[in-house]
Design a protein around this nucleic acid. Structure first.
Lengths: 336, 336
DNA sequence: TGCTGTATTGCATAGCTATGCAAAATAGTG
DNA sequence: CACTATTTTGCATAGCTATGCAATACAGCA
């Protein structure tokens, strides 16, 4: 009883039923093709009757464009990425593209997964929180497949990227923490090899030094919750405990706040200042209320989509920086 | 300079360079095909040199199997779904399948997005937090495409489903709340049309009544944070304020806790008991620590994957229920 | 060496649709 | 109505790979 149906009708079946040629069927489903409305409706009726739907695989094969966009994501634990995927998928959809998704181990090279995607002849690649070997990057370039990194800058120079304003944001945070009167300021890095974490750290450190402060104490949270909690404990066990921490993203800042509050009975803001980066929705949940620098998701994603879908200048590596805003909240108000 | 490269080599190019036929190239890339190791290595060398990779679109077209699985997700705001996607994508990958993803508006019919996916000849559909018109479900059945709902039961009877044990879980929660001594127990529904919410509500209500309680006060949180916050306020504004709430999932329970604690200065557990469902990682964050009934993600997903990839019995609608556990935490300890 | 049995190989075709080109049909004009 | 300009249609082919089948090469054995 479980015999495979295999009833999937093809264009020729529809053609036969409608009494037209296969070409007519094809044209009926191609907007802008040269076909009379009369035959189109004949075709549509027959198609409806048979349950025909054009085979996108054949179409893609012939056209050389699959309308598929490969997306590689890292850690789904950080809400930033699911939300990014959601808006990305929606935006691609309005442009008539589908999303072929692959979730990678955080910060792993995405090579093997990307090779698979290339086999499907994806029209472009959007990479978040992953790395790409330069050899594969060259292959993409050779094949004419645009690659754009989001929230990450590639080492392979041929790839474009769209990021938030890590430099400016980190400097504003530094300034803000100093203005607020914090004295011993620390930094919690994410994944050390990621440009995201490094850029924020460099700018943050630089700004502090420029204001006459010492180089901040430094700890590594690996962009995940467990790592950030450990890192925070490490900070709070210091003899000279810091009185403020800039975490390289909000997700780690949340973990830091939980450790400070529930393991060390410190009140965020007054006892210890904690800042993040991204402005994910959770950052203004009442239990966290994190000072942060925003990465506007819609803008970030639409830039990436634009870059990927615009045919021109595919081979120029364009690094787009989307500005955000410093958002001051109670996690860094010592006077309150 | 931005002329499209179009250098993508095909099997015939490799064949020419290697001095073999195109069939040989095909066989070299097909595991288990009849080919001598000598020619295979010749082919591989030539392929390497040209940067050839087999065109999965052509392969899929010919084989009638695309190795693509369509996945439709709802609200990415609830961490349950991103995590589910992550494990799903990984599991599919180990089985040699790719994930074609679509994020839908919560609880919308996924018809249009699914039609697009059908055009790509997905081998199967996995639907989370969406609905499917019965006509489209029939089409899928006719085309031999297995459809399985995860965390949701379809109205169209022909589709399989994998869910947590909503009935048992809700009953255990009811029992637990009564045992803990709560008196005025309320229920926060999710999306009213979803089977998930309804099943939990029915069992919960039934269990309470069986224990001689009144039918619980009822409020609707729509499975999202804003909705849940409003619903919680509504509850707490009652003259006869409830002293315990069972929220249809953890995501809403978190919102409920925030409202109780930060807007009404109530201590969860002692002043008001709050329970959830799912046991998402956040449920044991120290700021929440939610009593809940677990939905084991790995088990849930591997059941779904198995159902979808097993060729046999595609047309029997099998409803799999994965058991979880009641997990008691401080959000429902009135004595503490 | 000569035979048979097996492992490899190439040929030709199928799978489904889009599109250039020429033929046919239609519309437009006097 | 005759004739041209335009639209619509069908034919044939291309796009890339997998696979049945027949042909070839190879190995094994006496």
């Amino acid at each position: 009883m479980s015999t495979s149906a295999k009833n999937v009708p093809a264009a020729t079946d529809v053609a036969r039923l409608a009494g037209v040629s296969q070409s007519a069927v094809s044209r009926a489903f191609t907007s802008g093709a040269s076909i009379s409305s009369k035959t189109r409706s004949k075709v549509m009726a027959a198609a409806e009757e048979l349950g025909y739907r054009p085979n996108q695989l054949a179409r893609s094969l012939l056209r050389g464009r699959s309308q598929l966009i490969g997306v590689v994501l890292g850690n789904m634990e950080n809400p930033f990425f699911p939300l990014a995927l959601e808006t990305l998928s929606k935006q691609l959809n309005t442009h008539g593209h589908k999303t072929l998704v692959f979730t990678n181990e955080a910060n792993q090279q995405a090579d093997t997964s990307i090779e698979d995607m290339l086999n499907y002849r994806v029209d472009a690649l959007i990479l978040m929180a992953t790395t790409l070997s330069s050899s594969l990057a060259e292959q993409c370039q050779a094949a004419g497949i645009p690659v754009v990194f989001v929230n990450r800058i590639s080492h392979a120079m041929c790839c474009s990227s769209v990021t938030g304003d890590n430099d400016h944001g980190a400097r504003l945070i530094a300034q803000h923490l100093v203005d607020a009167g914090y004295q011993r300021i620390a930094f919690m890095a994410g994944i050390e090899t990621s440009s995201t974490s490094r850029d924020r750290e460099l700018a943050f450190t630089d700004a502090l030094i420029a204001m006459g402060r010492d180089k901040p104490m430094r700890v590594v949270g690996h962009f995940n919750r467990v790592g950030a909690m450990q890192a925070m404990r490490q900070l709070l066990e210091q003899a000279q405990r810091p009185d403020a921490v800039f975490c390289a993203n909000d997700h780690m800042a949340m973990a830091a706040i939980d450790v400070a509050r529930y393991e060390y009975s410190l009140t965020p803001g007054t006892d210890i200042g904690i800042a993040g980066f991204d402005d994910i929705p959770h950052a203004h949940w009442p239990g966290y209320d994190i000072t942060t620098y925003s990465q506007p998701l819609d803008a970030l994603i639409s830039q990436a989509v634009e870059r990927v879908l615009s045919q021109s200048n595919q081979y120029d590596a364009i690094h787009t920086v989307v500005k955000g805003n410093l958002i001051m909240r109670s996690s860094t108000s010592p006077t309150q």
